[in-house]
Design a binder for these strands. Structure first.
Lengths: 340, 340
DNA sequence: CTGAAAGCGCTAACAC
DNA sequence: GTGTTAGCGCTTTCAG
């Protein structure tokens, strides 16, 4: 009962392997009578063309590789969901890899994916890959082997299609929102200070301060590394100045920060307003429900998937690489003072 | 600059293709001098054996297929994370598919995965696949093609390795916990009433009631379908009886239920204690932080991955199929009254 | 209408 | 030491 092949069927009917192939594919070259017999037999024995053979023949696998830094992050899950949705509709499968924020693992993953297993690649870079050799590798893959689409954490050094969020703009808009509701001392808490997107958001923040005549103060930027004691860092920050607004660059940080701030007796949003990035499941259910910047992860995934599949199916169509910028939107809830 | 093959290298040096193959694989059969030349050239041109060819040759792809009903559910993400971790360590890749709780999509996914693309399969069934033909298909795959490991939502009808949670036991223990903290009117809210695991948990619940002399009342079981208005259903339930405990069979339901209960003016845990299944990110940060049943998703994933890879690498070792039961644990937080 | 042969890229047994 | 051959399972000319 092992998998049945064309050869097996051929033997059974005493016909050649190519005849069987044509018969199961309903070719007009084969007599109706024989076709019917063969097709019936094939169906009964659950014949299915061996994908591996077809892959080799067609040099295509109908699968796309996805590399994300961290799968326990709701934003990336949403993107993954969007990618899978579109890919599935178009008959592609997803082979998903987690780089775990490690350049080394990212590199290894690329090695595997570049060996012919996937028809295209969608990825978001590990936090520090800007200064890392994977960049060159990715560029080489994109140039010579398979189409690549980068999303969210992208690099200018790689020429390929990209889907990003208007990070600069959203840093700017969010900060202005704080200013509009009357906040003056706005601090930023970032777990992604060494990534481009983190930097851009902070640039936007600075721009908004500048435009509104508020001097920028380096001390208002809190970089939190993975292992840092957020609690302690926050107490330094809160003692540093009379802060009335906190911009957190990811969701889990926002939620944790709100918890800490509340524990220290501040009222949210009475004393301090908080906005976080990534509108996931968390921020909606905490108390107070948090105002968040939605990056529309699912949409980003869908977009990336569409762009990639287009490149796969229409190679060398000469279209220049595109960078789609997805506008963020502010989901206003209870962690910010009312705009009136 | 397209991908270079053995043939290309052979042509370049005027040697045969098999010589090149041996040279790049550092075979002792080849003269050191030639080997060095070839290896150098291969490296310079980024030669990499074509995976597709190897796959066909070895009838193996070093990838495992994972089918989960829903990827936006933290439990499944945790499992996926665990699966990927172990698989990665052992040199396997993951091709992940979402069945979206749809039998039809599940079936299609199986078709694809069964065509030779994966060396093994890890899956959790869609809610109603017990009464569905995919069961037979899965059994056939497990019997004749590739090893299969089922987890969480499994079916007795399929003979294969399984990793499950002690659902009955945890329903029982959780209910007894409620009783021990003094709750008498314990309702259950289930979004998975038509799945085995949901049924088992409720069986455990009944058993605990029975053991403690509390009569079971069908009205205390609230089945919520996907589209139902939870708010409305909850108000029926709360009016039905003086409820002092709520057992919710998944995390998002638990969090939503707590929100609704609080909005209606009940104090948690003063008036009503709440426990939910799946200890994800949400329950920890809501107010009050919720007491949850942890299913140890990551561990389940790791276990499933190990069992599958063992079957893949040691086929027909005659070991009977195993069902590992992972014990749940209760993470006590603030949504339940203190045990004193 | 049916079959033989080539080839996708690679490995392995077996010559030479 | 190096090359030849066969074959993984399939499709696709091209003969017959």
């Amino acid at each position: 009962m092992k998998k049945i092949t064309l050869k097996d069927i051929g033997k059974h009917f005493g016909v050649s392997i190519s005849t069987v192939s044509k018969a199961v594919r309903d070719s007009h070259e084969i007599s109706t009578e024989l076709k019917l017999k063969i097709q019936k037999y094939a169906k009964e024995n659950h014949y299915k063309p061996n994908k591996l053979a077809l892959n080799l023949l067609n040099k295509s696998t109908k699968t796309i590789g996805v590399v994300v830094p961290n799968i326990l992050n709701y934003f990336f899950i949403q993107v993954l969901y969007g990618i899978e949705k579109i890919a599935n509709e178009k008959g592609y499968n997803i082979i998903s890899c987690i780089s775990d924020e490690s350049n080394e693992k990212e590199g290894k993953t690329l090695e595997v994916l570049d060996a012919g297993t996937v028809d295209g690649l969608i990825m978001s870079l590990t936090n520090d890959s800007n200064i890392n050799k994977n960049i060159n590798y990715i560029q080489e893959i994109a140039n010579n082997h398979i189409p690549v689409v980068l999303f969210d954490r992208v690099s200018d050094a790689v020429k390929c299609d990209k889907v990003i969020v208007d990070d600069y703009e959203s840093g700017f808009k969010t900060t202005e929102y704080f200013i509009n509701i009357g906040c003056k001392n706005i601090a930023v808490i970032t777990p992604i200070s060494n990534s481009n997107i983190g930097k851009l958001r902070i640039e936007g923040y600075k721009k908004a301060l500048y435009k509104n005549g508020i001097p920028f103060d380096e001390g208002m930027i809190l970089n939190i590394e993975r292992k840092h004691d957020l609690d302690l860092e926050m107490s330094f920050l809160l003692n540093y100045k009379e802060i009335d607004a906190l911009l957190c660059l990811d969701e889990i940080t926002a939620v944790k920060v709100q918890t800490i701030v509340k524990e220290r007796g501040y009222s949210v949003p009475g004393d301090i307003s908080i906005i976080g990035f990534t509108n996931g499941q968390l921020s909606k259910y905490v108390t107070p429900a948090m105002t968040m910047v939605s990056q529309h992860g699912k949409y980003i995934g869908e977009m990336a998937s569409k762009m990639l599949i287009k490149r796969i199916e229409e190679p060398d169509n000469g279209e220049p690489f595109e960078t789609k910028v997805i506008k963020t939107s502010l989901i206003v809830r209870e962690s910010t003072k009312k705009l009136d």
